[in-house]
Design a protein around this nucleic acid. Structure first.
Length: 457
RNA sequence: GGCGGGUUAGCAAAUCGGUUAUGCAGCGGAUUGCAAAUCCGUUUAGAGCGGUUCGACUCCGCUACCCGCCUCCA
């Protein structure tokens, strides 16, 4: 089967063909760097990484663009409230620019530890302010904007197709609007450019044809996607929450300025749930990659956990589930290692694996196939080669994994040697006593045929 | 209130109108001086009520419960 992907635009799985031969333009909404990313954010980035790997396995070159949202935006779309960067600045005593740099650095480190491939282009909103201004001018030229006392707004009523991606019930939204419209004409209208308030000293602001201020949240993605990928490209991704607001707005901007719906495919990753609720930055506690490390987990175990669920269904996170993933990953690594050098991959298994991946990225089934492979009667070198092929999609780093060699202190080593000797003399009482001593020192001794191994308890 | 999704065994989570998902845990066995690790085998499913069908976890309807979006948000 050729590659088929679910497209939120059509709400169906359809065949993927690239607009340009052998090349895919991919834009993925990146992080807002006013705080750390949490593992829920990374579930989406992991989904996108899986997508990218599958595209490559289908022979495409992937031109991947991701934005870094480092411009402060408002806490609420009612266009009131505090700016997140400025708020973070006050919280930490650092400048808005330092904060953006700090959290961007942390983000990049997390990508690395999760085995996520770096985008072709990682672009900051603040590095592309002129492009955003030009984009707004283009929209203005086409007659879709209006001015209020606090900014330039997009008039969604002028666009009959507005909100199609989210299948928005505009009338219902208008009637049931939960926030005060202010000077906005329609509930769905949104800011393209915001004016700095004269009384507030902002750390991040720029001059524009409309006055000093800063860009609206949605414009950066449209502007940078347009700059790096053109007005119409292959795939645009983000989290499920973007289906109803952010992405329809990106589309409306591009539609107004250039007459396209920006991307051919719109794909969305679903949330990870914590205690049966969505994990969010604004509601206090959230789990970071660093917390996983602090608790002794390998971040790749989280990647494994994400592979066990389909990207279009919500995944319930628990430490038990992560434990299960870590154990499974460890066993998989040891199996892979013990298979020795790779030979030639089994084409039957590889074909079945590709079928699963091409069927809208069915990683859970592709992963299940891994266990069928390991239990099969194939020769070790064939299994190994097939497994390494599979891992090109999974990204678990099986090719380079080697068992950790423990650095055993001399004192521990001597006790272990003594026990080995006692055991060989069939002095079980002494052997057990010495093992007790090792346990007290925090080491576990495993007897092998030709020797023992020590592991830290 | 509007829109959308879900409810699978102890946990997490897939597929499929009739054939073992898978992983983790549990249980039994092999192995081991005893262990550990490993290997083999294996018990627990499909929210409730109806309908369609020769046959439904799988399709349809209703009910209950849960979740997401509608507000910054992966």
């Amino acid at each position: 089967m050729s590659l088929h992907l679910y497209d939120t635009w059509t709400r169906s799985v359809r065949e993927f063909t690239s607009l340009k031969p052998n090349e895919v333009g991919l834009y993925t909404c990146g992080p807002t760097v006013y705080d750390y990313q949490h593992i829920g954010n990374y579930r989406t980035f992991l989904f996108e990484d899986g997508l990218k790997r599958v595209l490559k396995l289908n022979g495409y070159r992937v031109n991947h663009v991701m934005n870094i949202t480092d411009v402060g935006h408002l806490v609420s779309d009612a266009d009131e409230g505090e700016d997140k960067m400025e708020k973070g600045s006050r919280r930490t005593g650092k400048t808005a620019w330092d904060i953006a740099a700090l959290y961007t650095e942390s983000f990049v480190a997390d990508l690395k530890s999760l085995g996520i491939e770096f985008p072709t282009t990682l672009c900051k909103a603040t590095d592309n302010i002129p492009e955003q201004i030009a984009f707004v001018q283009e929209i203005e030229k086409k007659g879709y904007t209006y001015r209020t006392s606090d900014g330039i707004y997009f008039d969604t009523a002028k666009q009959p197709t507005y909100g199609y991606l989210g299948r928005l019930d505009i009338a219902g939204l208008q009637a049931g609007a939960r926030v005060d419209l202010g000077e906005k004409k329609n509930a769905t209208d949104y800011a393209l450019w915001k004016f700095s308030k004269p009384e507030d000293q902002r750390q991040m602001e720029w001059d524009s044809p409309w006055g000093r201020g800063f860009p609206g949240w949605h414009i950066e993605c449209s502007a940078m996607a347009h700059k790096y990928l053109g007005a119409y490209f292959d795939i645009h991704c983000g989290g499920e929450d973007h289906i109803t607001v952010h992405h329809p707005n990106e589309i409306s901007q591009t539609e107004a300025a250039y007459g396209t719906r920006l991307a051919n495919f719109w794909m969305h990753g679903y949330f990870i749930l914590l205690n049966s609720a969505k994990m969010s930055k604004s509601s206090g506690e959230f789990l970071r990659v660093q917390l996983l490390l602090d608790k002794g987990y390998d971040p790749i175990a989280y990647r494994y956990l994400c592979l066990t669920a389909h990207y279009r269904s919500q995944l319930t996170f628990s430490w038990d589930a992560l434990d299960a993933a870590q154990t499974a990953l460890e066993r998989l690594r040891h199996s892979a290692h013990s298979l020795g050098a790779p030979g030639v991959a089994d084409q039957g298994f590889v074909a079945r694996w590709m079928e699963k991946l091409n069927d809208d990225l069915n990683f859970p089934q592709a992963l299940a196939l891994t266990y069928e492979l390991l239990k099969s009667e194939l020769a070790a070198d064939v299994k190994k080669a097939t497994l390494l092929k599979f891992d090109e999609a999974f990204g678990l780093g099986l090719a380079n994994w080697v068992p950790k060699v423990e650095d055993v202190p001399a004192t521990v080593r001597s006790v272990a040697d003594a026990r080995w000797a006692a055991r060989n003399n069939k002095d079980w009482a002494e052997a057990d006593r010495l093992r007790g001593e090792l346990t007290a020192l925090g080491w576990a001794m495993k007897d092998g045929k030709d020797g023992y191994t020590l592991t830290k308890a």
